[in-house]
Amino acid sequence: MEEKLGGIKAALSNKGQGKVWNTVENLELSTSFDAMAFSKEHLRDIESSLTIWLAIRRPEEEIRSKLDLGYTIKGQDLFLEEIRPVFKKPGEIGRYPFAKVKYEKTSELWKIYWMRGNLKWYAYDPKPVVDKLELALEEIMRDQHHCFFG
């Protein structure tokens, strides 16, 4: 955990050089990251909540090479993703977002989105807005309309 936080701190200190972090693989991804979207403390809390969520939801160790869960942070958006081999290209690993949680700084609220078959994000109708990330993750786990996990 300390290694991951150290990496996040390094990303935040490089203000001109954005990075996206994935805690499952602890890798830097070559995508833009708004280093000022979250404070260091807020990012640490987000990381902690997502780590707990992953510990609960991730599949068994034996099948993680075929199906795993992870997340990516881009600016104020958190993307929960399936990580699995690309169809018809089993040697390549793909990341497929199934949920998006967006932090709105002005209202300090979290908005929950799901991706429809047309690959566009839609507000999650049962509870589109919550005041804590943990509540958003709980709502995604509950998935009462089967939008996230089928």
Rank of each mutant, 00 (worst) to 15 (best):
M1Y: 08
E2A: 14
G7S: 13
I8Y: 06
I8R: 03
K9T: 12
A11K: 13
A11W: 14
S13Q: 15
G16L: 14
Q17N: 09
G18W: 13
K19Q: 10
W21G: 08
W21C: 14
N22K: 14
V24F: 06
E25G: 08
E25N: 12
S30P: 00
S32M: 14
S32T: 11
F33M: 15
F33H: 11
M36I: 05
A37T: 12
A37N: 05
F38E: 04
K40A: 10
H42A: 10
H42S: 07
D45V: 05
I46K: 02
S48P: 00
S48A: 04
S49I: 02
I52L: 08
I52T: 07
L54D: 00
A55H: 07
I56Q: 09
I56W: 09
R58A: 04
R58Y: 00
E62Y: 12
I63A: 01
R64C: 01
S65N: 13
D68C: 07
L69I: 10
L69H: 02
I73F: 02
I73Q: 13
Q76R: 15
L78S: 07
L78N: 08
F79Y: 15
F79G: 05
L80A: 06
L80F: 02
P85W: 05
F87P: 05
K88D: 01
K88Q: 04
K88I: 05
E92N: 06
R95Y: 10
R95W: 10
Y96N: 02
P97N: 14
P97V: 14
F98P: 01
A99V: 14
K100P: 02
E104M: 11
K105H: 03
S107L: 10
S107Y: 08
I112Q: 03
W114V: 12
N118E: 02
L119P: 00
K120N: 06
Y124V: 13
D125G: 07
D125P: 03
D125C: 07
K127C: 11
K132S: 05
K132R: 13
L133G: 01
A136S: 12
L137W: 03
E139D: 10
E139P: 01
E139L: 13
I140W: 01
D143Q: 10
H145W: 11
H146W: 11
C147K: 14
F149D: 02
G150W: 04
